[in-house]
Design a protein around this nucleic acid. Structure first.
Lengths: 243, 243
DNA sequence: TATGGTTGTCTATATCAATAGACATTTAAG
DNA sequence: CTTAAATGTCTATTGATATAGACAACCATA
């Protein structure tokens, strides 16, 4: 698990090391002891000064992943990476349901607006037609996992914001509005560094990585009902595509 | 396209700005002029000093994405993001084929080894059974797109390294070894920061993001034939999942 | 050829990142 | 109680990062 860190890359050593330790924790590298190796050992492993390792651990402590105890060592507090299956019938709440006790979708804001070119293409409507836009955050056991911007055709799903706020689930909200089933037509996946807004919304470590999906959901006749751009904290989730 | 950069995050401003500009280029933001906006404009947009923007542009020039010309401006040299469809019949070479002139898969190294727990689970064999491991790099028009570690059951596909080296394609190599068709059973997708080895192998900007896939391919009877971990340069590709 | 807009270079300064060493404090174990 | 091992704190120094300002060099064009 060594593999040296890189200098003069615009990414501080302490951040690289924090990322590596976070990943090692979620991969179960320290499961036997439940603790991160001593600072002096890590410093030797990564080839850096002990103070640099301390900066990395401080960042992880800030995230709530580890807790340093004087005299004992650095304890692992949280070890997580939710699996998020992407299938024809992708259901966020259901898919994650077995891995977390409580799943909630929170509506941050919504508005009615006119579809721009991207949204119109996704929903297969004409640019300028009215759509409902919703900004949401989804949480597993109180911890933010992703935030999303979703668009719906305004005529058919004008009641979406209200239904979503009540049910805290897209699937249930669709059901309330008379759409009992829907399928995922396409999903695009990319990855970028988180910007300020998403860092705040997802309670992320600054400079963290986002996995981004652009998805179109359709009803059973193939008519688009939702176009959504979701931004996932990359260190908290993984996607699984089953065929 | 504004959205401010973040300070004191362990990620240097010039690197954040370079990432943003690179992404804007690949999204086609500057297609009309074929040029990046003037340094003074970018500095104002991002709320930083002009010298900081210059550091970012210098990094992009180093990557060969832009070329600054005194008196004229900064020209866009290369504009890239390959789309990589992930389907039941995922074929790297074929999928990318239409987007690049030349696709090549290069064998870096290979060895015969005993399957560890992960590999055994992927290939549905017993840990300790012999497998062939191959380290490969895949290039589109000479530019590295991904590197991968792949395992094959040694008994059935002992000739894999040789066949791959000759055909530069997994699909063709399988065909030579008597497997005319195969399907993708599962794919896991995650994202991390690139480590030193992958930075070198993929000719990446240091600190770049990797999209990682873990995939199991099976023959038409559902018997696993390949377990592969691929690491893609996140700023050069996107995945598309079609259903 | 004159001008405005652009990139290139230089100096100076402040802050962050990283190293180095010394020592204090706490915990667990002998 | 003593000791070893671990984290916590402090000072000092160096190099990378970022800001600020001034001016040179170059290009296109009016």
């Amino acid at each position: 698990m060594a593999g040296q860190v890189q200098r003069q890359t615009g990414v501080a050593l302490w951040r690289q090391i924090a990322d590596r330790i976070r990943q090692a924790i979620s991969a179960g590298a320290y499961d036997e002891t439940g603790m991160v190796p001593p600072e002096t050992v890590l410093a030797l492993q990564f080839g850096v000064n002990r103070h640099t390792v301390r900066s990395a651990i401080a960042a992880l402590a800030q995230e709530g992943i580890v807790r340093a105890v004087q005299g004992r060592g650095t304890l692992i507090e949280r070890k997580e990476r939710l699996n998020f299956p992407i299938t024809k019938r992708t259901r966020f709440t259901a898919g994650i349901g077995e891995q977390a006790r409580e799943m909630r979708g929170l509506l941050l804001s919504y508005s009615e607006e006119k579809a721009d070119a991207d949204v119109a293409r996704g929903l297969q409507i004409r640019p300028g037609e009215p759509v409902i836009r919703m900004e949401t955050v989804r949480k597993a056991d109180g911890r933010p996992v992703s935030c999303a911007t979703a668009w719906f055709p305004a005529g058919r799903f004008g009641g979406m914001p209200d239904a979503y706020q009540r049910t805290e689930s897209i699937t249930k909200a669709f059901a309330e509005l008379g759409l009992s089933d829907y399928v995922r037509a396409t999903t695009e996946i990319t990855a970028v560094h988180a910007d300020e807004a998403d860092t705040a919304a997802l309670d992320l470590a600054p400079g963290a990585i986002l996995l981004i999906t652009k998805a179109v959901n359709t009803d059973l006749e193939g008519v688009p009902v939702q176009y959504a751009i979701s931004r996932f904290a990359a260190d908290r989730v993984q996607f699984t595509i089953e065929n």
